[in-house]
């Protein structure tokens, strides 16, 4: 299963890299991309990625209330929810998952990836 991870270069990107260096779930193929702030990821980019063979997108960024650009993570959360609602309506079982991390606290990423695997197992 393929997951595309998008992280902001303030916290999400280094955190994803650190998680992957530490070894991740073997069933997963993770493609990592960095952006300046999670707020720049718009719905169309998410959907464009999902048009490919990725089943999940992981958005990793600063915690909601301490986003470097004040509102970036909130934007990302709202957009992820919107895309998920659209996918849900269209009965497509691809999803966008969120993980709010700091550069040191990477466990939310591992949890989110594990959740993706669980969910996939349940569906199939």
């Amino acid at each position: 299963m393929k997951v595309v991870a998008i992280g902001c270069d303030k916290s999400g990107y280094p955190a994803v890299l650190r998680t992957l260096e530490g070894g991740c779930t073997p069933q997963l193929e993770v493609d990592v991309r960095g952006v300046s702030c999670l707020g720049v990821v718009r719905e169309s980019l998410l959907l464009e990625i999902l048009e490919g063979d990725a089943s999940y997108i992981l958005l990793a960024g600063c915690p909601l209330d301490s986003c470097h650009n004040l509102e970036g993570s909130r934007f990302a959360k709202a957009r992820a929810e919107r895309v998920n609602a659209l996918l849900d309506e269209a009965e497509v079982d691809k999803r966008v998952v969120l993980a709010f991390v700091t550069a040191d606290k990477t466990s939310p990423i591992r949890d989110a990836l594990a959740r993706c695997v669980d969910e996939k197992d349940r569906v199939t």
Partner: peptide, 14 residues
């Protein structure tokens, strides 16, 4: 433009 692209994207995913 954005919403059009989103809808087309969804249709392509399907």
């Amino acid at each position: 433009e954005r919403e059009a692209r989103e809808l087309a994207s969804i249709l392509r995913i399907r």
